[in-house]
């Protein structure tokens, strides 16, 4: 059913918290996501022309790098983009077949590939570019929040997190229940003032982004000295040459 499940109080809302302060833009999350999901419930994640001109393929993570601000105040921010598992996702309600659905028990948004007719309307309805069409399979694909990992009892408990989270070398990705105010992720969001993307569109994304921390004050420029210290400069040069 593409009608949304009725949210109960204390509803479990599984999602990701992505730290834009520590993300180094290495794309490991995208690669490990691709690796896991190419064999997971959404398999295969088809690539077209992978070794030729204009390669194209299905990926659930895309990592943008932006420059925010201008001049000396600017900063580079790496920005991983994936499904935000919205509370009121239009991608689900526009689906004419019931292939797209939001799970009542944990809020994960999924696509049933056996029901999808490949009309692509859900990808039009998503403002975050979370859905990518698999041309070869003729169905829409999207992040599953690694539903086949997080409940997988064949995996050690520590590995029962989405592939992108487990692989992040900078610990910039956190996974948990954002519906529980006492969960680690909720506390992290509260502490770091995590924000939702484009909340004004009304889809109530679950994932949160932690903004880059304020920068430390730049060191004061060296005080202008008096007349040039030629003897000192000579000594420093001698010191540099001798210490080679």
């Amino acid at each position: 059913m593409t009608s949304l499940p009725v949210a109960s109080p204390g509803q479990k809302k599984l999602g990701l918290v992505i730290d834009l302060d520590t993300c180094v833009g290495c794309h490991a999350c995208a690669v490990n996501c691709k690796e896991w999901n190419a064999g997971g419930v959404s398999a295969p994640l088809t690539d077209r022309n992978p070794y030729q001109d204009a390669p194209d393929g299905v990926w659930f993570n895309r990592i943008h790098s932006y420059e925010a601000g201008t001049g000396t105040a600017s900063r580079t921010v790496h920005f991983p983009r994936s499904c935000l598992h919205c509370e009121t996702p239009a991608c689900v309600t526009v689906c004419p077949t019931g292939a797209s659905y939001k799970r009542a028990e944990d809020g994960i948004v999924l696509v049933d590939p056996d029901r999808c007719i490949g009309c692509k309307l859900c990808s039009w309805a998503c403002p975050y570019g979370a859905r990518e069409y698999d041309v070869q399979e003729g169905v829409m694909k999207k992040c599953t929040l690694c539903v086949d990992r997080i409940y997988n009892e064949a995996l050690p408990e520590a590995d029962r997190v989405p592939a992108c989270v487990s692989t992040c070398p900078a610990h910039a990705r956190h996974f948990g229940d954002l519906g529980d105010p006492d969960s680690d992720v909720s506390k992290l969001v509260a502490e770091r003032e995590g924000y939702a993307l484009m909340p004004e569109l009304g889809y109530a994304p679950v994932n949160r982004y932690l903004p880059p921390r304020p920068r430390a004050e730049p060191p004061a420029p060296p005080a202008p000295s008096g007349p040039p210290d030629i003897a000192g400069a000579l000594l420093r040069w001698v010191d540099r040459v001798l210490s080679r």
Partner: peptide
């Protein structure tokens, strides 16, 4: 991106080099 708080946001490196 929610990064507008820092000023103008300019794409630096794209996530992929070809059209997806």
């Amino acid at each position: 991106t929610g990064l507008g708080r820092f000023g103008t946001v300019r794409p630096l490196d794209p996530p992929h080099t070809e059209e997806n």
